[in-house]
Design a protein around this nucleic acid. Sequence first.
DNA 1: TTGCGTGCAAAGGTTTTGCATGGCA
DNA 2: TGCCATGCAAAACCTTTGCACGCAA
Lengths: 141, 141
Amino acid sequence: MSEKTHYRTRQMTMLLSYLESVRGHHITVNDVKDYFKNQGVAIGTATIYRHLEKMVEQGTVLKYVVDNTSSACFEYVGSHEIADQPSCFHCKCEKCGRLIHLHCTEAENLRLHLFEKHGFKMDSIRTVFYGICDECGENSR
Amino acid sequence: MSEKTHYRTRQMTMLLSYLESVRGHHITVNDVKDYFKNQGVAIGTATIYRHLEKMVEQGTVLKYVVDNTSSACFEYVGSHEIADQPSCFHCKCEKCGRLIHLHCTEAENLRLHLFEKHGFKMDSIRTVFYGICDECGENSR
DNA sequence: TTGCGTGCAAAGGTTTTGCATGGCA
DNA sequence: TGCCATGCAAAACCTTTGCACGCAA
């Protein structure tokens, strides 16, 4: 609750700067390392994990784990509240892995329904609709 | 497509029997090992992974990966087709972890909308709505 | 007899942990 | 100066792979 970052270190500053620049996109720990390498600054793997994990707890970063052998994906979204979030939803194609952002009233209706009838507060930022996208569906016919 | 299981081995028979008995529930590779141990039969980890992975490809088993350090969850659902599946959806509480099954027309509407307007075939069996459930929402007030 | 299924062990990869050092306030 | 942040290396963990042996057909 009253957790606070104590020191504004160079690593943390750069990490935040990088995250801002890729807001809404999916990145891995290696992407962060590459960014630091390109900037000519060293950073330890553990440091990245420690920061990202803390931000995941705070809700400013989302974590997607697709499978246990490849690296997890992180997405910087900034601060958000479940009760007051934009009606933005994600569809993920199970074939090509494409992540589609969309705003649609049907999804928003579902969210309202779940809350009013089932008392369930759907977190639209963390919810992903899985399926087969347009292109992959076409190709398999 | 024309894949077929060649030998009906003791391990495969027992695995299928176990999966039937826990249909709709989430299990890990360790749960399978424990089952075999209790039955007094040895089974290698690799064998379990190999079978489950094959079933995931065939669509009779679903795989949920929550995080990279803990074991993946599997769920036996039997055969299913994306194009022709029951309108059953899952809500998962991010606090207590409870998984809620539900049939609702709003979700079904969303699925139809995604297909008609976006060409996206939503796989309702693999899609999970994340959020905060009734009870956990009450308690936090 | 044939060849797939199995089990063991090792490898491969990601993430976490421990500890000494460095740097911010 | 005090104490948190960092980085390195090792540990921990899950999952996959290679290979020889066993077993179903």
